[in-house]
């Protein structure tokens, strides 16, 4: 049997971490993945960027719509996943548009991120707007 293990956490916990703590967690995840791959138990796996980057796609009356954010319909349950490779978000939306259950529910698109030993950026969006000027 193959099993899909889905990982959940409260993103606020991640945002409140220091860069060191966050990098340490990422290194742990890399080590965990390596161990499972070596023992032949891990087929594939990826970390996702935070839900800030999510786009939800729906198909209603033959019309494809994309909206900001993760889907929030509590009466919808996870039914499957596709790992897609696309040039950019526009292509990803068009590809997701081909998934048949889209007309029943929704598909949440999230970019995959690479784990790094340090300097992990996802979720660490700088809080200062370098371009916010008030001089006009």
């Amino acid at each position: 049997m193959n099993y899909l293990a889905l990982v959940y956490y409260n993103e606020d916990l991640i945002r409140s971490m220091s860069q060191q703590e966050w990098d340490a967690l990422n290194r742990e995840c890399m080590a965990c993945g390596e161990g499972l791959r070596e023992s032949g138990h891990m087929l594939d796996g990826h970390a996702l960027q935070l839900t800030d980057t999510a786009t939800t796609v729906r198909l209603r009356d033959g019309k494809l719509t994309a909206t900001d954010g993760p889907f929030a319909e509590t009466k919808e349950q996870l039914a499957g996943f596709y790992l897609l490779t696309a040039r950019d978000l526009n292509e990803a939306i068009q590809l997701a548009g081909k998934i048949p259950p889209l007309r029943l529910g929704s598909v949440e698109i999230r970019p995959v991120r690479e784990l790094a030993t340090e300097g992990n950026l996802a979720g660490k969006t700088p809080l200062i707007d370098h371009t916010a000027r008030s001089d006009g």
Binding site: Q49, L89, I109, P111, A122
Partner: peptide
């Protein structure tokens, strides 16, 4: 508030970059 707008703009720019929103006319 200006801080709310500044935050909104920062988040939008981050999403464009992180989610791969392209610079193109569809």
């Amino acid at each position: 508030k200006p801080t709310t707008i500044a935050q909104r703009i920062v988040r939008a720019k981050a999403k464009i970059r992180d989610a791969g929103i392209p610079y193109e006319v569809p």
